[in-house]
C-alpha cells in the first residue's frame, strides 16, 4: 500500500509559539489533528478560506515548521514548493539562469556543464525561450516568472510538489496556461501535487481529489466528483455555493 503513497500525515497538530524574553509564550495551534495521504501521481487539492491554515500545513509538510504532535511521513525525497506571488518570490538581483542553477549548485553533485545542461532542459520543459536565461525577474511577465518558479522547484527532480496558490496572482488566460503546464509536467516527470487554492473552479479543473479544510481541520475529503456533486459537510456546501 505504502508504495503508492508520496506523503502521509497522521494526526498532525502544528502551530506557532510567540515566545518572549520573560514568558514562555502561548502556543497558537493552527492545525488540529490533520490526517491525509497524497497518492502517487495524483493532484490533491486543498481548499478552504484564507486563514484556515493551508499555508501552515504546507510549511509543516516541508519541515519549515515542526509539528507539535502527530507524524509527517515522506515517501519521496526533496519535496519542493511553488509559491503564490511570482513577483516577490524570486530574488530580483539575479538572472533566471542563476536562480535555476542555484539548487543544483547547493546540491553540489554536478559540474558546471551538467548544471547548464539541466537548466536549459528545464527551461524548455516550462516552455520559456532561451533568451530568458539572462533576464532578471523584473524583465519578465507574471506568467513567465511563475514558469521560472516552477522550473526552479523542479530542477532537482522532486517527485512531489506543493503548490501554494500558484495561479491566484495571475490573470485568467495565464492561469489556464500555467495549469496546463502543471498537468503536462505531471505526465512528463511523474509528479504528484498538493495543490493549495481558495479558487474552487481551478481545483475542479485540475485536481483528482480534494481536501476541504476549515479552521485547521480537514472537514471532508474525497474525489472531485464526490466533493463537487455530493458534498457531505455543511461547510463544503457553503464554499460551493459561494463559488457559483
Amino acid at each position: 500500500m505504502s508504495e503508492d503513497l508520496v506523503l502521509s500525515l497522521r494526526h498532525v497538530t502544528s502551530g506557532y509559539r510567540d515566545g518572549g524574553l520573560f514568558r514562555r509564550g502561548a502556543v497558537q495551534e493552527v492545525l488540529h489533528d490533520v490526517s491525509f495521504d497524497v497518492r502517487h501521481g495524483e493532484i490533491l487539492g486543498l481548499v478552504g478560506e484564507s486563514g484556515t491554515g493551508k499555508s501552515t500545513l504546507a510549511r509543516t509538510i516541508l519541515g519549515m515548521l515542526r509539528p507539535d504532535s502527530g507524524e509527517v511521513v515522506h515517501y519521496t525525497k526533496r519535496p519542493q514548493m511553488i509559491f503564490q506571488d511570482p513577483y516577490s518570490s524570486l530574488n530580483p538581483a539575479y538572472s533566471v539562469e542563476w536562480t535555476l542553477e542555484e539548487p543544483l549548485r547547493i546540491y553540489g553533485k554536478y559540474d558546471r556543464a551538467e548544471r547548464k545542461r539541466r537548466v536549459r532542459e528545464m527551461l524548455s520543459r516550462v516552455e520559456l525561450p532561451e533568451e530568458c536565461l539572462k533576464a532578471r525577474p523584473g524583465e519578465l511577465s507574471g506568467g513567465q516568472r511563475q514558469r521560472v518558479s516552477i522550473a526552479a522547484a523542479l530542477i532537482r527532480r522532486p517527485r512531489f510538489l506543493i503548490a501554494d496558490e500558484p495561479v491566484s496572482a495571475l490573470d485568467v488566460t495565464i492561469q489556464a496556461q500555467i495549469l496546463e503546464l502543471l498537468r503536462q509536467l505531471r505526465q512528463e516527470l511523474d509528479l504528484s501535487y498538493l495543490f493549495i487554492s481558495h479558487d474552487l473552479n481551478v481545483v475542479y479543473q485540475l485536481c483528482d481529489r480534494v481536501l476541504v479544510m476549515k479552521s485547521g481541520r480537514i472537514v471532508e475529503q474525497g474525489t472531485v466528483e464526490e466533493i463537487f456533486e455530493h458534498p457531505q459537510d455543511p461547510y463544503t456546501r457553503q464554499l460551493l455555493e459561494a463559488a457559483q
Partner: peptide, 17 residues
Amino acid sequence: QKDYVRTAISRGNDRKG
C-alpha cells in the same frame, strides 16, 4: 522578511547561504 528569502530556503539554502 521578503518572499524570495523564503523561496531560497525552500530551495535548499541554509541561513548562511
